[in-house]
């Protein structure tokens, strides 16, 4: 049995979308709806991290952009009274601007120096938020954030879900467009071989900064969405948790692929809630850690490559061929 890839991709995407659209009607549980909203937000967030990684830059402090987007959008919305639906995109621009600044310090760094700098950057931003910027940000006490939709609107949760679904689809489409465009090709070229890319006339600094700006913008959108959904904002948003989860999601789903962050976020959220229902506490994190390590070692292209690998394996078995040595070098 053979699959036609492109056709399957098309149908699969349509089916995924269809499921996303109808799922609220399959359940009347607000818990699940709320979980889905948070999941969509983290799909956006993970996708933004993935875009930066696609350009060869692995950030360990993406919570910084998540948080800056949230603070900027909240402050603008609270001061001006503009609806959060608009300020989300203005706030994210602030995140993108800061993203370019931090990108400027990072573009010439080796990949693990960059990881250290971004990790530290999240800590610095949190520190600034609670010290120098405290008069504006409310310091450790935080500040309340205007809701996306007023709870007085009947069925507002459903409207909110669909609104966030639309923004999620738009974000993924934007990332798809970037990846397919000349810019995306440039990202790829620079990631694979910077010298050759330079020789071909590409300016690595410019493209790395672009990647930072795009990624920070989308992460800012995700952060703003989350905080307008939750309704209260504290500096804990910059925490290591929020930097590490998107990485875990993307690695499991498939680094550098469009569907990876989506698959990874959905699968891990389901596993996580399932484990929680069994009453496990610390064990949940241990299991997630094991899954992450197994994925890195045995499924380096993530869950999205799983069906392909299974197919490959079946094919070989049918031909009674021995499995090839794992190509890990």
């Amino acid at each position: 049995m053979y699959f036609n890839r492109d056709e399957l991709a098309k149908y699969g995407m349509i089916a995924t979308l269809a499921i996303a659209v109808v799922i609220p009607f399959l359940t009347d549980s607000m818990f699940i709806l709320n979980l889905l909203v948070l999941m969509l937000i983290f799909i956006i967030f993970a996708s933004s991290w993935n875009l930066l990684a696609y350009s060869g830059q692995g950030s360990l402090g993406h919570a910084a952009f998540f948080g800056i987007g949230a603070y900027a959008s909240t402050l603008i919305a609270a001061q001006s009274g503009i609806t959060p639906f608009v300020t989300i995109f203005i706030g994210a621009a602030v995140a993108a601007f800061i993203g370019i600044l931090i990108g400027l310090t990072c573009v010439r760094l080796k990949e693990w120096f960059l990881a250290m700098v971004t990790f530290g950057f999240a800590i610095i931003v949190q520190t600034l938020t609670v010290s120098v910027l405290a008069p504006v940000t409310g310091g450790w006490d935080g500040l309340s954030s205007p809701r996306l939709l007023s709870p007085s609107i009947p069925g507002y949760q459903l409207i909110e879900y669909y609104a966030i679904l639309v923004i999620t689809i738009a974000s993924i489409a934007a990332i798809w467009y970037i990846m397919k465009s000349r810019i995306g090709l440039a990202f790829l070229a620079i990631r694979e071989n910077e010298l050759e890319a330079r020789a071909a006339g590409l300016d690595p600094v410019r493209y790395r900064l672009l990647a930072f700006a795009f990624s920070a913008y989308i992460a800012g959108v995700a952060g703003a969405l989350e905080i307008h959904h939750i309704g209260y904002l504290t500096p804990e948003l910059y925490g290591v948790d929020n930097s590490f989860w998107p990485i875990t999601y993307v690695i499991l789903g498939g680094l550098g692929t469009l569907a990876g962050p989506v698959v990874g976020t959905v699968v891990l959220t389901v596993i996580w809630e399932g484990l929680k229902a069994t009453g496990l506490t610390f064990g949940r994190y241990v299991i997630v850690g094991v899954i992450l390590i197994l994925a890195i070692i045995f499924l380096p292209r993530g869950l999205v490559s799983l069906p392909e690998q299974v197919q490959e394996w079946l094919k070989r078995r049918r031909r009674k061929e021995p499995l090839p040595e794992p190509v890990g070098d």
Binding site: D6, L8, G12, A15, L26, A259, V266, E273
Partner: peptide, 25 residues
């Protein structure tokens, strides 16, 4: 990119999610 196969994964996951929801209920 191998969307086809990824998409199957997405479908499986979505199915699992629905199953999970109904079970939870």
């Amino acid at each position: 990119m191998k969307y086809s196969t990824l998409v199957i994964a997405v479908l499986l996951v979505a199915a699992a999610l629905i199953a999970g929801c109904s079970q939870q209920q």
